[in-house]
Amino acid sequence: MNGAITLRQPVERRKQRTLLGDAIRRFRRNALAMIGLLILFFLFFLALFADVIAPFPPDRADFGAVRVLPFTHPTYPLGTDAVGRDYLSRLIYGARTSMTVGLLVPLIGFSVGITLGALAGYLGGMVDFVVQRLVEIFTAVPPLLIALFLLSVTGSGLFNIIFVLSLTAWIEPTRLTRAQFLTVREKEFITSARALGATDGRLILTHVLPNILTPLLVAFTFAVPQAIFAEAGLSFLGLGITEPTASWGKMVGNSVGSTIRVFYHLALFPTILVALTMLGFSFVGDGLQEALDPTRSR
C-alpha cells in the first residue's frame, strides 16, 4: 500500500460513435438493403431525368411502327405499343408517374396523420375519441376499395389518384403517432420538461416528436411502395391513370389480352419494373428497421 494511485488514461482512444453512425454502419452491412438502395437510386434517376434519358416523348405515336417486337428495330430497342409509341420512353416516364404518386401520397398522408395522431395522443379526451372513431370508419373498408369507389365518383387521372389515395393514407400514420404519443407521454423526461414549464406545443415539437421519428420513418418507407402499388393496381383495373400519361400498371393492364401471346414485351417489361420497385422499397424498409432498432431480431 503505497498511497500513490495513478489514474491511467484509457490506452486506445475509442472512436466516437453516434446513434446515427451506428445505424448507418448496420445498414451498410445489410446486403439486401444496399441492393434495394441501388434500385431506388436507379428509379429516382429515371424519374428525375426522364426528359433527358428517354429517346422520345412518351406520347409520340409512330403509326408506321405499331407493336414492334423488342430487339428487332434499331430506333425502338424495346419495341412499341399498340399505337406505335416507343416502349422504352414510356417505361422511363412511367417511373416518373410512379414516383410522383409514391412520394406525394405518403407526404400528404403523414402530414395529416402525424398532426391528428399527435393531437389525439397528446390531448386525449374528446379529440381522441373523435379521431379514433374516424379511423374506425375508414378502416371498415379496405383502402383500395375506398379508392376504387371514390375514383368512380371523382373520375380518373393523375391528380384524382393522388387525392383519392391521400384520403386513406393518413390512417396508418395517425394510429402510429397516437400509439407512440401514448407511450412517450408517460416518460420521465416529459414530466420533467413539463415541470420546467414547457408549453404543450414545445413538448410536442421538441420533446415527443423527435423520440418517435424512427418508427415514423420506417412507416414512411413502407407507405411509399404501398402508394405505388395502389396506383399501379388501380391503373391495371383501368380506373387509374388516363391516357396519354405513362403508367406501368396501365401498361400491364392494357397488355393482358389475346395479343399477349406474341407481344409479350408489352406485359413483361412494366411488370419487371413494378416488381423491382416494390422489392427495392421493401428491402430498404426492412434494412432501415433493423438498422434503427438493433433490439429487433428480424
Binding site: V256, S258, A267, L268, T271, A275, L279, S282, F283
Partner: peptide, 28 residues
C-alpha cells in the same frame, strides 16, 4: 418477402405469360 411485396397482379401476369400463353394452357 418477395411473396408479400410483389403485387399479385404482377405475379398473375407472369404466370399468364408463362403457362397461359407460352405453354398454351389456356385462352385469354
Amino acid at each position: 418477402t418477395a411473396g408479400t411485396t410483389v403485387p399479385n397482379f404482377i405475379v398473375a401476369t407472369w404466370l399468364l405469360l408463362i403457362f397461359g400463353y407460352q405453354i398454351g394452357w389456356g385462352q385469354p
